[in-house]
Amino acid sequence: MFNKPMELSAALAANLDAAYPEVVRALQGQVFSTARQLLGNRHDAEDAAQETFVRVYRALSRFSTERILDLRIRSYVWTTLINVCRNQARSSRRHPQTALEVDHGFVDPGSTGVEASATWGPRLARLPERQRTAVVMHHVAGLPYVEVAEALGVPVGTAKADVHRALARLRTMIETEGEVA
């Protein structure tokens, strides 16, 4: 369902309440996984993903039909998510007791999730914010560069460069860890 962005916007414009659940279903995995890596723990990620989808719905319900038809809904969701994650990261820095609740034990049946999250979380956390966001959106969520660039509000070339720099840094981190071990 909704393979083309146009179909999605048209469905939302025709009947927001009927089409919105499909938007959530289509994007929730990517949105949650991104928030999970940007915020470092599952609980905050669930909150951020929920807030993102609720905010987008409330915005859409205020928009005119024309505006929804013109809207790139996916990129609107991603921009909202980045803002929500930024705000949440800021408020958890202000309230350090919640920041301590970082769960490194992430259980996901059928995958090596526990180990993966535990080792990658701290590495991603050491990247500059925009590089981290870009690499998570491109490689974790699997978004094309165009969508990453749109959500970050930068040219496509810049998004690509951010992703590559982030990968290079992560590789260096792994090599250094290898030497230590």
Partner: peptide, 10 residues
């Protein structure tokens, strides 16, 4: 490895 961090939403 990063691709492996994509999970189903709860």
């Amino acid at each position: 490895a990063l691709e492996g961090l994509r999970f189903e939403a709860p």
